[in-house]
Design a protein around this nucleic acid. Structure first.
Lengths: 151, 151
DNA sequence: CACGCTCCTGACGAAAGCAGTCGAGAAGGT
DNA sequence: ACCTTCTCGACTGCTTTCGTCAGGAGCGTG
């Protein structure tokens, strides 16, 4: 139930990339813009590249850019690229766990949790983040004052 | 974004406790019913006790029981008792992180994620799990076939 | 009151994951 | 040639996870 530094960095880097329309952006510039350790960031960008989210060129004038338009890249895509599956129970996907006794219906709860996570992460795109124009459902969730309370 | 073994065990033990109306239940019996390592389970039950969710008595005829009616204990209560806050980004609560540059609106996304997690976990009670009568909203989420798909 | 039962608690430990750092190399531009 | 920038594996130190172990403290019964 936590967002790792890696996932956080990955989304932030992607958001920064989405804001640049022309040409490749150096890793160093991304690192500075988002205050991320450069060498760690390059590992992350490499994973994003392997997942086909980012492309890169080396050498002078090299750098990174998004492989697809940012409206077609969801936050879920980015997180899955660097972290794998979004919701696990005990390192296994929820639909594969088997409960006995009085806990049988717990599996439905975990499935519902995952569905609600996906509802936000698969419908918010990188373009939404950079522009601040989040999907209506997400805006509504974030607008409620007690969503901001700690507990 | 994952449910730890500890949290899973805690909820399952609570569900098992909710099904017993009379008298204390031994840790050993809970461990067997849910196939949880006994000594690990006792640590967990101790934490649940400290959180005021469970009560216990030692000695012959001793055991554990729920401190409140299971309809008044939510899954969120149990998870918080053993794991602390439910949703963090980089070990800090989402409302306290500060983003710069093009990632500014990301904080609203994390808040929305947490709100949607809470929507399930704070409205499903231990009694709901043991009876299988989950809240309508949760049932609806779990009913969709593609909520069960892996991705 | 002694004894057995059961919970209570802290200490310990192996393994994995997290958050980076380092250094060498490969590809690209000029 | 030469500098720039990405590529990639290895390594490190720290924390978390998932337990086990041993001893003690409280409770009930004969």
């Amino acid at each position: 139930m936590r967002v790792s530094a890696k996932a956080d960095y990955a989304v932030r880097a992607a958001a920064e990339l989405a804001a640049v329309e022309d040409g490749p952006v150096k890793g160093e510039r991304l690192a500075e813009a988002q205050d991320i350790p450069l060498q760690f960031l390059e590992h992350i960008l490499l994973e994003l590249k392997h997942a086909g989210i980012v492309r890169a060129r080396r050498g002078a004038k090299g750098g990174y850019w998004l492989a697809r338009p940012p409206e077609e890249i969801t936050i879920a895509d980015v997180i899955r690229a660097v972290e794998g599956p979004i919701a696990n129970v005990q390192s296994a996907p929820p639909e594969s766990v088997h409960y006995r006794g009085k806990a049988e219906h717990l599996v439905e709860v975990w499935i519902a949790v995952r569905a609600n996570l996906r509802a936000v992460l698969e419908h918010t795109t990188i373009a939404d983040v950079t522009s601040g124009k989040l999907p209506k459902a997400v805006k509504r969730l974030a607008a409620s004052p007690d969503a901001w309370e700690h507990r």
